[in-house]
Write a protein that binds this DNA or RNA. Structure first.
Lengths: 153, 153
DNA sequence: GTACAACTTGAAGTTGACTTCAAGTCAAGA
DNA sequence: TCTTGACTTGAAGTCAACTTCAAGTTGTAC
């Protein structure tokens, strides 16, 4: 139990991450823990804040590598302040804006194309991949794609 | 070459998919090809339309399994009409709308939370995972997540 | 008829983010 | 002290969507 350290299952429950994920994040250097004399992990409360950051960053679409880089910008020695967290998450807003814009563009493209069935017509960009291929090189350019997609949790 | 059938590399170039992806899609049952006497693939032109559909569907965020299910709804025996394509892609618009809405919600949540640094404060949902865990079960509920994300191409 | 690019196959590898497993060790309440 | 749930480890497995590889075959321009 108790006062100021937490066990793996306590952190798991409070953070929402599975114990296996916590061990994985530790191996990746995203979080750390002290050990009991018997070798079991004990976490400081500050790890919860760190995990909250990781959860939010994942949701925004950052990879674990990127999250690691962001966390590396936190001061070592002292606990991060409000300003520290703000600083390293400042770019998230524009990242989301870009992603939203990309999806909107895709949606509008669909409205004028697949949505109306012109997939089967000669002049639709979607149904006429050779034109696109000739112009853009690969089919990946048919439509803008969302930025920073991530696999299912 | 020529008149009405296409080789693998021709389809690859015109569709934007790599030859290995075409073989993979064939194994998955998404596309099909006839064979020469020597066993090489020859594609009908209609495969390009199918591939355009696959490309668009991938972009919208469908998995290959879902794309397969959608393609299974096309009539067999005759080539799909404009109405056929429209029918099976009708749900894409709302799917994108939902995904966009989820991202906007996430963005707005960030504006009021991480963005202002309250990650370090007591009453922020993000910095207070135990409350969320108690209420929602897992950390996955901190923020709405985008629907149907997909791995990098 | 020959050269050679393009094609064939099944199997294994890749990436990211984890999870699962087996086999054993630790912590703490009764 | 005993019991039992929680914990430990490294290695291997999972998932999606492909790519890469090796070793051999085919198609066609000359």
């Amino acid at each position: 139990m108790s006062s100021d350290v937490l066990t793996v299952s306590q952190v798991a429950e409070r953070s929402g991450f599975a114990p296996s994920a916590l061990r994985f994040y530790e191996r990746q250097g995203l979080i750390s823990a002290t050990r009991t004399s018997g070798g079991q992990r004990r976490y400081e409360r500050a790890v919860l804040r760190r995990l909250a950051f990781i959860a939010a960053a994942r949701r925004v679409g950052l990879t674990l590598d990127e999250i690691g880089e962001a966390l590396a910008l936190l001061p070592d020695g002292r606990n991060p302040t409000k300003a520290d967290w703000t600083r390293i998450s400042r770019s998230w807003r524009s990242r989301l804006d870009e992603e939203i814009a990309a999806l909107e563009k895709l949606r509008d493209g669909l409205d004028g194309c697949i949505g109306c069935g012109c997939l089967s017509l000669q002049r639709c960009r979607l149904s006429n991949p050779n034109d696109v291929a000739a112009a853009a090189g690969t089919g990946a350019a048919f439509f803008p794609s969302p930025l920073h997609p991530r696999p299912e949790d």
